[in-house]
Design a protein around this nucleic acid. Structure first.
Lengths: 208, 208
DNA sequence: ACGACCTGTATTGTCGACAATATTGTCGGC
DNA sequence: GCCGACAATATTGTCGACAATACAGGTCGT
């Protein structure tokens, strides 16, 4: 991934923004024009994104956006369940008083967002909470694996956020995680996180 | 990773066999001679192995074998702890009678190997057991993550196998995993696996 | 009308040459 | 003798051109 980091980042961002549909072909020359780069840089970017699991390539057939079905999304969520469980446990063991207060503030904001029916705001807070837990846990390997898995889930994440009534359920699960972490109870934090993501997995299976 | 899969595999195998030392520079032209390949293929291989976490590259400075310190090895083991826990749970839920018998056979062979003091044989059985559990669990995402993490651990794995008395301890942990999986008890299987890998993590910390 | 084959086109794979950059070695000044 | 600047070398980065391959559409024979 040495060659021109710019192209890699822009292409990845474009995919994550959903500018390409699953199984859509990615023709190298078209990408060259779109990102104003050489074929060399585009090829390197495609190779990097293949390793990221965002695109798939077949010899002499080129690259296409990898399609991630419900079954694979469920598997990803199952792995996330245990790895984020580890993160929650570590966060509970290492949380500082300042961080604890910040977590509690997110919890309060979540309740307000749900009460006001602001789904976009709630979705944003959700991302902030998980991200903050990763920062607190300071577990590089776990964090990088979660980032890797998250990149493959964007499309389904979007579908999930549209399932009606999910925020009402998940706000209590989030609160349970926050409480356990703030109290420094690693066991409870891991358990709460696993319960939470298990319900995400169930919701995913419900879509399929 | 389209280009010449042969070079990627051979280079990866060579690294895993320990033919290069950590932080050793990998000069492209030397690799070209060693594997009788073009620089193009070698570059592609290096890029692929960078994504694999085996090699690190800096712009205009080339590639070198990535050094994985004890602290990182511990983090890897902590992630393995929860992901292999998931695998053990799934294996317990899906095991067939034939598979159960095969697991039990490995358990008996392990006891014999320990009694006879055959450490190489025991190490081999250990790999076979974990591999068989992955086959039984049939969880692609979990399996691929474990494979990915395992590749970065080879050096430390070797160091671990030389810690005296480890096999005497771990044989009982392995038996506990086998028993739980054979009985189809997912909770117990996950717990046993986590206990087992926790002791691996402790041994690693002891080395450092 | 249908299928096998063949040809043209679009696209990707590979290479060799050159440019850009880092690293090493050398020299002169102090 | 030591330090900085500069030159020489080693190594990687980038590109354009060509080869190899797959795919689509048409042609021929039956």
């Amino acid at each position: 991934m040495v060659a021109d980091t710019r192209v890699v980042e822009e292409l990845k961002a474009a995919i994550l923004r959903g500018e390409f549909s699953p199984r859509q072909r990615l023709v190298e020359i078209e990408l060259c024009e779109q990102f104003d780069a050489s074929r060399f840089a585009v090829r390197a970017a495609l190779q990097a994104l293949e390793a990221d699991g965002l695109v798939e390539r077949q010899r002499n057939r080129g690259a296409r956006i990898r399609e991630i079905g419900i079954d694979e999304a469920v598997e990803i969520t199952e792995v996330r369940q245990v790895v984020e469980g580890l993160i929650a446990r570590r966060a509970a063991e290492r949380v500082s008083v300042d961080e604890a207060e910040a977590l509690a503030a997110i919890g309060r904001a979540m309740h307000e967002a749900v009460a006001a029916g602001e789904v976009a705001e709630y979705s944003d807070l959700n991302a902030r909470l998980h991200s903050m837990l990763r920062d607190i846990a300071r577990h590089e390997k776990a964090n990088s694996i979660i980032a890797h898995l998250h990149g493959q889930m964007v499309r389904h994440q979007f579908a999930l956020s549209r399932v009606p009534g999910r925020s009402k359920v998940s706000v209590h699960q989030h609160q349970a995680i926050i409480d356990a972490v703030v109290e420094g109870d690693g066991d409870a934090a891991e358990q709460a996180m696993r319960t939470h993501i298990a319900s995400v997995a169930d919701a995913l299976r419900g879509i399929g």
